[in-house]
């Protein structure tokens, strides 16, 4: 074999061999077990932190709210829709049964007009929506910027929840 061919073949062989070795060394362990990906990635995705607890956990302690709510229009609303993610709150309460909840773990109590308006502000796309097919009732729509804005007697700004109990609107 001519000299230059010998050298070239050696160089290429070394290169390819190095590549194959590196490939074996660098390839992640669980790669290819289920498909062309790291099977471990599924577990890693599953292991992420939760924030929403689910309303089943809420009713464990706040039973009265639940019964309150069940009678009204907001019956099918999950607690965390308005109060925000509550897993930390629940976990703390589970751990220290009688302990006082630190302020940072207290859940949000929405009381502004803006927060009610998120669902109830008049909107052409909302007007015909039937949400409760059993009672065939529509979602109540108001113009939150005008509807009973001020108390007639005291002339002070009114909040929605001063007239409507959010758990039994």
């Amino acid at each position: 074999m001519p000299q230059q061919i010998k050298r070239l073949v050696t160089a290429f062989a070394v290169f390819i061999l190095m590549f194959l070795v590196l490939q074996q060394v660098l390839k992640p362990n669980s790669f290819g077990k289920l498909g062309h990906y790291r099977a471990m990635a599924i577990q890693e995705n599953e292991a992420r932190e939760l924030h929403y607890a689910g309303s089943a956990r809420c009713t464990k302690c706040h039973d009265e709210m639940h019964t309150d709510k069940a009678a009204g229009f907001h019956a099918q609303l999950q607690c965390e829709v308005c109060h925000g993610p509550g897993l930390k709150h629940v976990l703390y309460a589970d751990k220290f049964k009688d302990g006082k909840l630190p302020d940072s773990l207290k859940l949000h109590k929405p009381d502004t007009r803006k927060e009610c308006a998120i669902c109830h502000q008049l909107n052409a796309a909302r007007i015909k929506i039937v949400f409760d097919t059993v009672n065939n009732s529509m979602i109540k729509q108001v113009n939150a910027l005008k509807h009973n804005l001020v108390d007639k007697h005291t002339k002070e700004e009114l909040k929605c929840i001063e007239c409507h109990n959010p758990h039994q609107p």
Binding site: I42, N45, E46, A47, R48, E49, L50, H51, Y52, G54, Q76, L77, Q78, E80, V81, P85, C119, I129, F131, I139
Partner: peptide, 22 residues
């Protein structure tokens, strides 16, 4: 991720959990 971390614990994905009108 369809909240696979919630599915795995028997919970609904967050967006399904909070949808007020199902």
């Amino acid at each position: 991720t369809l909240c696979i971390h919630r599915l795995e614990k028997g919970l609904q994905p967050a967006c399904f959990e909070v949808c007020p009108t199902e």
